[in-house]
Amino acid sequence: GTVKVQGITIKVPNPDKAYKIAKKLAKKYNLTVTRKGNTIKVE
């Protein structure tokens, strides 16, 4: 899958794990995490 952070896309082998990490970071930096299948977008 991929993770998008402010325009940066990161390929990740485990979208579930990445999503959990993204959620933690999002809370810390007051961002929104959206997930569509293997693509995770943080904005």
Rank of each mutant, 00 (worst) to 15 (best):
G1P: 08
G1I: 11
G1R: 05
G1V: 10
G1F: 10
G1Q: 06
G1L: 11
G1D: 05
G1Y: 11
G1T: 07
G1W: 13
G1A: 08
T2Q: 10
T2R: 09
T2L: 13
T2G: 05
T2F: 15
T2E: 12
V3H: 06
V3P: 05
V3A: 07
V3N: 05
V3M: 07
V3W: 02
V3D: 03
V3C: 15
V3T: 04
K4G: 04
K4H: 13
K4R: 10
K4T: 14
K4S: 12
K4L: 14
K4D: 10
K4V: 15
K4N: 09
K4M: 14
V5W: 15
V5T: 06
V5F: 14
V5G: 05
V5C: 15
V5Y: 14
V5I: 14
V5H: 14
V5E: 03
V5A: 05
Q6A: 15
Q6P: 06
Q6G: 15
Q6D: 11
Q6I: 12
Q6R: 14
Q6T: 10
Q6H: 15
Q6M: 14
Q6V: 13
Q6N: 13
Q6C: 15
G7F: 09
G7Y: 10
G7K: 05
G7D: 06
G7I: 13
G7H: 10
G7V: 10
G7S: 08
G7P: 05
G7T: 08
G7Q: 06
I8R: 08
I8S: 03
I8E: 02
I8F: 07
I8V: 11
I8T: 06
I8W: 07
I8G: 02
I8M: 08
I8P: 01
I8K: 07
T9D: 07
T9M: 11
T9A: 08
T9N: 06
T9S: 11
T9F: 07
T9H: 09
T9V: 11
T9G: 03
T9Y: 08
T9P: 04
T9L: 10
T9R: 06
I10S: 01
I10F: 06
I10G: 04
I10L: 06
I10Y: 06
I10E: 01
I10M: 05
I10V: 10
I10D: 01
K11A: 10
K11N: 10
K11C: 15
K11S: 12
K11L: 13
K11G: 08
K11H: 13
K11Y: 14
K11P: 09
K11R: 13
K11E: 11
V12T: 06
V12H: 06
V12I: 11
V12E: 01
V12R: 02
V12L: 08
V12K: 01
V12N: 02
P13H: 11
P13K: 13
P13R: 13
P13E: 09
P13N: 13
P13D: 13
P13C: 15
P13I: 12
P13W: 14
N14M: 11
N14K: 02
N14P: 14
N14C: 15
N14I: 05
N14F: 12
N14Q: 02
N14S: 09
N14E: 03
N14A: 03
N14D: 13
N14L: 07
P15G: 06
P15T: 12
P15E: 01
P15S: 12
P15I: 15
P15W: 14
P15A: 14
P15L: 15
P15K: 07
P15V: 15
P15D: 03
D16A: 06
D16V: 06
D16M: 08
D16Q: 07
D16I: 05
D16E: 09
D16L: 07
D16R: 07
K17Y: 14
K17G: 04
K17D: 11
K17C: 15
K17H: 08
K17Q: 12
K17E: 13
K17I: 14
K17L: 15
K17V: 11
K17N: 07
K17T: 09
K17W: 14
A18W: 14
A18I: 13
A18S: 02
A18H: 01
A18Y: 11
A18C: 15
A18N: 00
A18M: 10
Y19T: 03
Y19V: 05
Y19W: 12
Y19R: 07
Y19K: 07
Y19E: 08
Y19I: 08
Y19A: 06
Y19S: 05
Y19C: 13
K20A: 13
K20C: 15
K20V: 11
K20Q: 13
K20S: 09
K20G: 07
K20D: 14
K20H: 11
K20F: 08
K20R: 10
K20E: 14
K20W: 12
I21L: 08
I21K: 03
I21M: 08
I21F: 12
I21Y: 09
I21H: 03
I21V: 09
I21R: 03
I21Q: 05
I21N: 03
I21A: 07
A22M: 14
A22E: 00
A22P: 01
A22T: 02
A22F: 14
A22H: 01
A22S: 03
A22G: 04
K23E: 12
K23I: 13
K23P: 00
K23T: 10
K23R: 10
K23Q: 12
K23N: 05
K24Y: 13
K24C: 15
K24Q: 12
K24W: 14
K24T: 08
K24A: 12
K24I: 14
K24V: 09
K24F: 13
K24H: 11
K24N: 08
L25A: 01
L25N: 00
L25K: 01
L25G: 00
L25P: 00
L25S: 00
A26F: 09
A26H: 01
A26S: 06
A26E: 09
A26I: 08
A26L: 11
A26D: 00
A26C: 11
A26T: 03
A26K: 05
K27G: 08
K27D: 10
K27I: 12
K27A: 10
K27M: 09
K27Q: 10
K28Y: 15
K28L: 14
K28Q: 10
K28E: 09
K28N: 05
K28D: 08
K28F: 14
K28I: 14
Y29K: 04
Y29G: 05
Y29L: 11
Y29Q: 02
Y29F: 10
Y29P: 01
Y29M: 07
Y29D: 02
Y29H: 09
Y29W: 08
N30F: 12
N30L: 05
N30V: 03
N30K: 07
N30P: 07
N30T: 01
N30I: 04
N30A: 04
N30D: 07
N30E: 05
N30Y: 09
N30R: 07
L31R: 01
L31H: 06
L31A: 04
L31D: 02
L31Q: 02
L31K: 05
L31F: 10
L31S: 02
L31T: 04
T32D: 02
T32K: 14
T32A: 06
T32S: 11
T32W: 05
T32E: 07
T32I: 14
T32V: 13
T32Q: 10
V33E: 00
V33F: 00
V33G: 00
V33R: 00
V33W: 00
V33M: 02
V33I: 09
V33L: 04
T34D: 02
T34M: 04
T34S: 08
T34H: 04
T34W: 07
T34P: 00
T34Y: 02
T34Q: 03
T34G: 02
R35D: 00
R35N: 02
R35I: 09
R35L: 06
R35F: 03
R35G: 01
R35P: 00
R35V: 09
R35T: 06
R35A: 03
R35S: 03
K36A: 10
K36R: 13
K36S: 11
K36L: 11
K36I: 14
K36W: 07
G37E: 03
G37Y: 00
G37D: 05
G37W: 00
G37Q: 03
G37C: 02
G37P: 00
G37K: 03
G37F: 02
G37R: 02
N38D: 07
N38F: 01
N38L: 03
N38G: 06
N38Q: 06
N38C: 14
T39K: 05
T39C: 14
T39S: 09
T39I: 12
T39Y: 09
T39W: 11
T39A: 08
T39D: 11
T39G: 02
I40S: 00
I40H: 02
I40Y: 04
I40D: 01
I40R: 00
I40N: 02
I40W: 07
I40P: 01
K41I: 15
K41R: 10
K41Q: 11
K41G: 03
K41A: 10
K41H: 12
K41F: 15
V42P: 00
V42I: 15
V42L: 12
V42K: 01
V42R: 01
V42E: 00
V42A: 02
V42D: 00
V42G: 01
E43M: 10
E43V: 13
E43I: 12
E43A: 09
E43C: 15
E43F: 13
E43P: 01
E43Y: 11
E43Q: 12
E43D: 06
